Amino acid sequence: MAWRSSGASNEALIENLARNGLITQPRVKQAMLGVDRAHYAPHAPYQDSPQTIGHAATISAPHMHASACESLLPYLKPGARVLDVGSGSGYLTHVLAELVKPGGRVVGVEHIQPLVDIGIANTRKSAEGRELMDDGGIRYVKADGRLGWPEDAPYDAIHVGAAAAGFHQPLIDQLKVPGRLFMPVEENYMQHIYVIDKREDGSVTRKKDMGVQYVPLTDAPKG
Rank of each mutant, 00 (worst) to 15 (best):
L13Y: 02
S87F: 13
H94G: 05
L175E: 01
I53C: 04
V28T: 04
G137L: 02
P26S: 04
G7Q: 01
H94N: 06
A12I: 09
A143F: 01
A143D: 11
A31K: 05
R105N: 08
R139M: 06
V195N: 02
L115F: 13
L72V: 00
G104A: 08
V141F: 00
M32P: 07
A41H: 08
T205Q: 11
E187P: 00
Q191H: 02
Q30D: 14
H192T: 03
V100I: 06
A12L: 11
L13P: 03
G136T: 03
R130V: 15
Q191V: 04
P102E: 10
L17V: 00
R139V: 14
L83G: 01
G148E: 09
L175D: 01
I118Q: 15
I172N: 14
R180Y: 10
E131V: 14
I118S: 08
P74R: 00
V106N: 00
P114E: 07
R124A: 07
K125Y: 07
N188E: 15
L147M: 12
A44V: 15
N10S: 00
Q191K: 01
G108N: 08
A61G: 00
V212P: 02
D201T: 12
Y46I: 14
S67Y: 12
V185G: 02
Y140V: 14
T52C: 07
G179A: 12
I112V: 14
A61R: 02
D156I: 12
M210Q: 03
V100Y: 05
A153Y: 10
T93S: 09
R37C: 12
A2C: 07
V215G: 04
D135C: 13
S5T: 14
A38C: 04
S126A: 14
P170C: 09
S126W: 13
Y194R: 00
Q25G: 07
P184Q: 05
A68L: 11
G88T: 02
R81A: 06
D135F: 12
L217D: 03
V28I: 01
L73Q: 08
G104S: 08
R180G: 01
Y91C: 06
L175R: 01
R81C: 09
Y46H: 13
